[in-house]
C-alpha cells in the first residue's frame, strides 16, 4: 500500500534527478553546469521566501492568501520610494542610512497593514465560508496592487543595496574558467538563510512562536486556554508581511521594483503545492527545487527542443513550475512534506 502510494513520487523524483544529471552526462562543462545550478538556487531562495509567508498564514489561520505576491510588491515599493524620499524629507543621508530607516518604516507599514487586514477583512469573515475568505484575499491583492501605485507610483524603481552587481569568479583553481556568481546573489542567499533561521528560532523558542504553532494545530483549544486568535492573526500577517519585505528588497535590488514582481511572487503557488501547504521546510525545499528545475530546463532542455522541433524556444522558465506542480497534484496532492496528520484518539 505504502509502496503503491510512494511509487509515482519516487518515479517523479527519479525523472527529476535524471534531468539534473543529464547535462553532465551529455558533456556540459562542469563549471558551467554549476553556474546554472547556483543561479537556480538563488532564484529558488526567493521563491522559498514568498512561499514561506504563504505557508505561515495558511497554517495559522487556514486562509489561502492570494495577496502574498501583492504584499511583496507593496513592501518593495514602500522600501524603494521611502529610501528615495527620506533624504529630502528629513535630511538623512542618502544611501545606506536612508535605506535602513526606510526598511524600518516599511516593516512598520507591513505590520500596520496586517492589523488593518485583520480588522476589516478577517474578523468579519471568520467562521464564514472559506470561499469568502479566499475571495477576500483576492480583493486584498487587487487593492494592494492598485493602492500601491496610487501612493508609491507605477514606474520602475531601484533599491540600491550598495553591492556590486559584477560577477565574481570562484573556485578558479578547481575548474577551468572557474564559476561565475554574482555577489548580489550570494548576499541574497545569506539574507534569506538568515531570515529562515530567525523565523525558526522565533517559532521554536519564544512563547509567541509556540502560541502560533498551537493555533496552527488546534485553534479551538488554543482559544480555550486564552490565546486570543485575533492577536495571533495580526502577528502572523505581520510576520508574513516582514518576509514579503525581505523578499521584495532582495528581488527589487536584483530586478528593479516593478509590477512584474507580483507575478514573479505568484510562483510561490506552485512552490507550496510542491512542498505542501502546511510545511515550512516544504516551502523552502520546494522553492529550491523549482528554482533549480526551471533554470536547468531553460538552459539545458530548451536548446535541444528548439533543434528537434524547430520551435521558437525560450519561455520554459515561465511554465515549468506550474507543470511540475500539476504533476505533483496528480501524484501527491498533499505535497512533498504535507503535514502528517496525527490520528490517534
Amino acid at each position: 500500500m505504502a509502496a503503491k502510494k510512494n511509487g509515482p513520487v519516487i518515479a517523479l523524483g527519479a525523472v527529476l534527478a535524471a534531468g539534473l544529471a543529464a547535462p553532465l552526462v551529455t558533456g556540459s562543462p562542469l563549471g558551467f553546469y554549476l553556474e546554472v545550478l547556483i543561479g537556480g538556487l538563488m532564484a529558488g531562495v526567493l521563491y522559498s521566501l514568498v512561499a514561506l509567508g504563504f505557508v505561515l498564514i495558511f497554517k495559522a489561520s487556514g486562509v489561502f492568501n492570494f495577496a502574498q505576491g501583492a504584499m511583496v510588491l507593496f513592501a518593495a515599493l514602500a522600501l524603494a520610494r521611502l529610501a528615495e524620499w527620506l533624504p529630502a524629507w528629513i535630511g538623512i543621508p542618502a544611501g545606506f542610512p536612508a535605506l535602513t530607516l526606510a526598511f524600518v518604516l516599511a516593516a512598520g507599514i507591513m505590520v500596520g497593514l496586517a492589523w488593518v487586514i485583520e480588522r476589516i477583512v478577517l474578523r468579519p469573515l471568520v467562521a464564514q465560508d472559506p470561499v469568502a475568505l479566499l475571495m477576500a484575499t483576492l480583493g486584498v491583492t487587487f487593492f494592494l496592487d492598485g493602492f500601491g501605485q496610487t501612493i508609491w507610483g507605477s514606474d520602475i524603481y531601484k533599491i540600491d543595496l550598495g553591492i556590486s552587481k559584477d560577477p565574481t569568479m570562484i573556485l578558479e583553481s578547481m575548474f577551468q574558467g572557474g564559476i561565475l556568481v554574482s555577489k548580489e546573489d550570494l548576499i541574497a542567499a545569506v539574507i534569506a538563510a538568515g531570515l529562515v533561521i530567525l523565523l525558526a528560532l522565533f517559532f521554536q523558542k519564544t512563547a509567541t512562536g509556540r502560541a502560533l504553532r498551537a493555533v496552527a494545530d488546534d485553534h479551538q483549544a488554543a482559544q480555550s486556554i486564552g490565546i486570543p486568535l485575533n492577536r495571533i492573526w495580526v502577528i502572523v500577517w505581520a510576520v508574513a508581511g516582514f518576509v514579503a519585505l525581505v523578499a521584495g528588497m532582495v528581488w527589487g535590488a536584483k530586478l528593479g521594483v516593478q509590477f512584474s514582481l507580483a507575478q514573479l511572487a505568484l510562483k510561490a503557488l506552485p512552490v507550496v503545492i510542491l512542498g505542501g501547504f502546511t510545511s515550512i521546510p516544504g516551502a523552502i525545499i520546494g522553492g529550491l527545487i523549482i528554482g533549480v528545475g526551471e533554470k536547468m530546463a531553460e538552459v539545458f532542455l530548451g536548446p535541444p527542443l528548439v533543434k528537434m522541433w524547430d520551435l521558437a524556444g525560450g519561455g520554459i522558465e515561465n511554465w515549468f513550475a506550474y507543470v511540475l506542480a500539476l504533476l505533483f497534484l496528480m501524484v501527491r496532492p498533499e505535497g512533498l512534506f504535507g503535514e502528517k496528520h496525527i490520528d490517534r484518539v
Partner: peptide, 12 residues
C-alpha cells in the same frame, strides 16, 4: 475550560 476530547496540540 478543559475541552471535551482533550484537544492537545498534537505536533507540540
Amino acid at each position: 475550560q478543559v475541552m471535551e476530547g482533550r484537544h492537545c496540540f498534537a505536533h507540540l
